[in-house]
Nucleic acid binder design. Structure first.
Length: 224
DNA sequence: GACCAGGCACATC
DNA sequence: GATGTGCATGGT
């Protein structure tokens, strides 16, 4: 294993020891996770759960129903997740794409090589890098690393990336230095979010952060 | 009442 | 190609 891989491993163990397994997206089916990935864009997961509950209560947790639904009706159901007009469009774009190619077979849509699936997801308006990777990792259960703003900030502070690094470069640091295991990538991302929420904030001090013992700059994060 | 939350597309320069 | 802006609810 590379030196970076060893460091990433040790950082993971330290976070795991402090936060425990996070169990993100314990899963009520791949479709729900796909919808959740879009609904959670720049939004608290608690609000997303309310929107998903509304969809279920309306009998709309299936591809055909959402594809057939009018914009206003869908927007109203997902209202608690915020940005409901734009997210209604994004959900429809995604659902329509899957419906046309795969009918109700979301698992067939997801069960393809990562590169194929990722490219196709990214071609859908409303699905960017993070949402595509979230769908691949959490809904399809395939090993692709999800990068978010917390990940970028923590990696930068710990001098594991350059300030100029983009999404794909940050993702590559994890994927080329850790074993390609969906379960590890899943929990690793969740651990980074826990650190980001609780410690590694702009201008925050590092005391009692599980990553404090690893090399870092205190105020090197993005946007600081 | 300000600030934030598991982004993305589009306009503008 | 870099930077700015709109999208919107609910919890702290």
């Amino acid at each position: 294993m590379s030196a970076t891989g060893k460091l990433l491993r040790e950082m993971y163990e330290a976070m795991l020891a402090q936060f425990g397994h996070q169990g993100w997206w314990p899963g009520e089916g791949p479709l729900e996770m796909c919808l959740g990935a879009i609904l959670t864009q720049n939004t608290n997961w608690g609000n997303v759960e309310k929107a998903l509950a509304n969809l279920k209560a309306a009998g709309a947790m299936n591809i055909g129903a959402i594809d057939a639904m009018g914009h206003a009706e869908l927007a109203e159901l997902i209202r608690p997740a915020g940005y409901y007009n734009i997210k209604a469009k994004r959900l429809k774009n995604f659902i329509h794409h899957v419906h046309q190619g795969w009918g109700e077979d979301i698992e067939g849509f997801l069960d393809r090589p990562i590169s194929t699936l990722r490219e196709e997801l990214l071609s859908i308006n409303g699905i960017g890098f993070e949402t595509a990777d979230s769908i691949i990792l959490y809904a399809a259960g395939k090993p692709t690393f999800v990068v978010d703003a917390y990940t970028a900030r923590i990696m930068l502070r710990h001098q594991l990336i350059y300030i100029e690094a983009g999404y794909e470069e940050i993702k590559e640091v994890f994927e080329s230095n850790l074993p390609s295991e969906a379960e590890l990538f899943n929990d690793y991302h969740a651990q980074l979010v826990a650190v980001g929420k609780n410690f590694c904030r702009p201008m925050a001090k590092c005391e009692s952060c599980p990553l404090e013992k690893f090399p870092h700059d205190r105020f090197a994060g993005r946007g600081e």
